[in-house]
Amino acid sequence: MLLAGALDWGVIGDNLFSDLVLGGVRLTLALTVLSMTIGGALGTVFGIMRGSRIAALRAASVGYIWLFRGTPLLVQIVFWFFALPQLWPGWAPWNGQLSPFQAGLVALSVNEGAYMTEIMRAGLLSVDPGQVEAAKSLGMTGPLTMRRIVLPQAMRVVIPPIGNEFIAMLKNSSLVSVISVSELFLVAKLQYSSTLRYLEWLLIVSIWYLALTTVASLAQAWLEQRFSRGRRPQGRSLGARVTGALERLGRDTGR
């Protein structure tokens, strides 16, 4: 056993910021940000449909959640890449197949959209119906009321669960390694498979995942603070505390 017991810090040091690893980090970030954005848009649309007066729209929303929340993400990833061309040959203009990145992005987005639909629904329900009445009484149309009055207030409620989803997505995006998208985990996998430096490479990716999730948590705290405007003048939220701490830090170093 060539490597038994020996954790080689040199491997970590040499590779933590190598182009290979940074490339993986970039792809992981791109997949996460893009799929959360698309999933958020899908969730907003289906979440609004869920509360619609039109039964067909409500049914479509329920069916969407049922299908994509009820099947494994891994199955969905493989479906979009391998099974879609079989189901519907020549559907796409380019070779009838999505690239691994495209298939992975679609899978993550559509899956995320199902969870986001439920989150958005909860957020929309949290807004006092009196808000809609006030907006209507001022001559605002339904879409304008949604955009200017209801959604901004729903944001306050949905940011914590969305932060959760974002952090989950940073890690779940590693599942697209099965269709050969060379995001952070696949980079490490290819390396430990050939060098057998499992521990070192798992440490490298874990350090990166922890760094990314830490930044995401701070961003969430900041956003919570921003969207609680007018709600908590004293600011007892985590967001307020982090922002306050950062401001104090800034003041102290400024002196």
């Binding site: 006092d128 009196g130 808000q131 009445e133 006030a134 907006a135 009484s137 009055i149 901004p152 207030q153 306050r156 969207f227 405007r229 007018g230 709600r231």
Partner: peptide
């Protein structure tokens, strides 16, 4: 309105 219904985020 009786309960004002001001927009709390503005």
């Amino acid at each position: 309105f009786q309960r004002f219904n001001l927009f709390p985020h503005l």
